[in-house]
């Protein structure tokens, strides 16, 4: 059963179907090394997507919208200002094109390697767990747009959950997860727990894509832009 690197990449991109897809899936199931490569592709894709996603949420410079305001090419969509406002009003999910691939890629994935325990406040009698001082400090101050490559804990993105709290997905060597800020501190909403045994080899590879998918489920709207994140941080992540 031979699978070429090109085929693996095409599989990771969802380009294969039918017999080819089945053949690659079988090969991946039989060979952890291939599974790792697919996860590497997906992790890279997740990283690129989350890197460029904030651009979608930035206001488009006036000089660009003005080019269209005077033309009929806008298709009679009306005032620019209103459209921008309407866009904000619209349901958050509609504004998440960059998330879209995450679900699909994961649904197709044979190699989901992380188990996330998602706890919602109030659902568990024991109460919620909170981030320790060091992680809390990182969550408080580190901006995802301007973190050093050497950062031990990397912020993947920030967003608001359905309760309107600010939440941040982070990734660190010794664990990753999502924490939301309430009045007590950074409450863990999801934590990556490495699956035991052979799968731990590619735990880190799968974790970011899984986290982004979990974040997508929790988010009320799109990820915060760099500016929004900066403002939220300055305000202590509280409204």
């Amino acid at each position: 059963m031979s699978v070429t690197p090109d085929e693996l990449a095409a599989f990771a991109d969802g380009e294969l179907s039918g017999a080819d897809e089945a053949r690659v899936m079988a090969a991946i199931a039989a060979d952890p090394a291939l599974a790792r490569q697919v996860e590497a592709h997906r992790t890279l894709k997740a990283r690129l997507a989350s890197h460029f996603a904030p651009i979608l949420e930035q206001p488009v410079p006036d000089r660009l919208t003005e080019l269209l305001a005077g033309s009929s090419a806008g298709g009679g969509q009306g005032q620019v200002v209103d459209l921008a406002a309407a866009r904000l009003e619209r349901e958050g999910r509609r504004r998440l094109p960059a998330w879209g691939w995450v679900g699909g890629a994961l649904a197709a994935s044979l190699v989901a390697v992380l188990v996330f325990t998602v706890t919602r406040p109030g659902e568990e009698a024991g109460g919620a767990a909170y981030a320790g001082a060091q992680l809390a400090s990182t969550l408080d101050s580190q901006l995802s747009a301007a973190q050093p490559s050497s950062a031990g804990t990397r912020i993947l993105l920030s967003f608001r959950n359905r309760e309107g709290e600010f939440c941040r997905a982070y990734s660190a060597d010794d664990g990753s997860g999502i924490a939301c800020r309430d009045q007590r501190g950074w409450r863990f909403e999801a934590q990556g727990t490495g699956a035991a045994g052979a799968q731990t080899d590619f735990r880190m590879a799968g974790s970011e894509a899984e986290l982004l998918a979990a974040a997508q489920d929790m988010a009320r709207g799109p990820a915060l832009s760099a500016e929004e994140e900066k403002a939220a941080s300055a305000a202590g992540w509280r409204d």
Partner: peptide, 15 residues
């Protein structure tokens, strides 16, 4: 076209 602007910007900034 207006609705495409954010995506056009993303591609442009990426390029």
């Amino acid at each position: 076209m207006l609705a495409l602007l954010p995506r056009l910007r993303r591609f442009a900034i990426g390029l």
